[in-house]
Nucleic acid binder design. Structure first.
Lengths: 145, 145
DNA sequence: CAGAATCCCCGGTGATACTG
DNA sequence: CAGTATCACCGGGGATTCTG
């Protein structure tokens, strides 16, 4: 397939699809946080759990599994008496994390503009609502039973 | 608040949060595709709808609204007899889109490695399953009523 | 300590039909 | 043409409990 069938799958053939593909790996709620935390060398499950405030053990486990599956995190089990497991970000994950910086930087630099744009939009929106409801209607609170 | 209360909100204080913030703007299923399509100059609703294959009119409208609200897309209405509306990506959106490239590039360059990692993981996973089910059990299909 | 299992909720998304 | 309005789904994510 895709060879002659002319599937309608080519808007921004590569770039756009590739971006979504990257998001599938690191777009989950905790993905980036985990990779970031595991970038500073091996870190144990409990440490990870503590260093990422809002996360539940469940989501930590699940996200770690997908990251491990994709080769972004290595899992090392030390068969000591209280089980001890260490996680480390792979080189691949480090590259991914680095590729993330541009987006983070953009967000940091422009979240003020975004907020302003929202305020402006919401303001005009509210104004349009008023004139759409027709001025007369706004006076009629009509406290009649 | 946040002054002395020592809120547990500082894993990767800025970077990680900023990334998630960026995703809130462009992480939706169609966000990037729309910005990409609107980067090549003004484009009409129907054109947009055609150039992004899988999208429904509903999601196109909704996503355009949020993008407009965040100042990433400008909406221009021409009061002609058949209504004509044009959308254009703002400079802000262009910067955002540019900041996206690093991630897209990473995905393009490494999706092979990812696939390989997955295959390896799934292979070992299946193997572990077998030996965990205990060899004997695998022989017992037990066709008894 | 490091999970696995279960239940439940909610928001993003899709399908369909109607409108100015 | 360019939307809006409804309904319905389903999968990510959270809270809680159990285990080797």
């Amino acid at each position: 397939m895709t060879a002659g069938s002319r599937l309608p799958d080519d808007v921004e053939p590569d770039t756009c699809a590739a971006f979504r593909d990257a998001l599938d790996r690191v777009g989950s709620k905790w993905g980036i946080a985990i990779i970031a935390a595991a970038s500073d060398g091996p870190i144990r499950f409990a440490e990870l759990h503590r260093s990422i405030p809002g996360i539940s053990r469940r989501m930590l486990t699940l996200t770690l599994r997908t990251l491990e599956r994709d080769g972004l995190i290595t899992r090392t089990v030390h068969p000591t008496v209280p089980p001890q497991v260490e996680y480390t970000a792979t080189a691949l994950a480090e590259e991914l994390y680095a590729s993330t910086r541009a987006l983070s930087a953009w967000a940091e630099n422009n979240h003020a503009k975004i907020a302003a744009a929202r305020a402006a939009y919401d303001g005009n929106e509210a104004a349009r609502q008023e004139e759409h409801t027709a001025p007369e209607a706004r006076v009629r609170a009509d406290p009649r039973p």
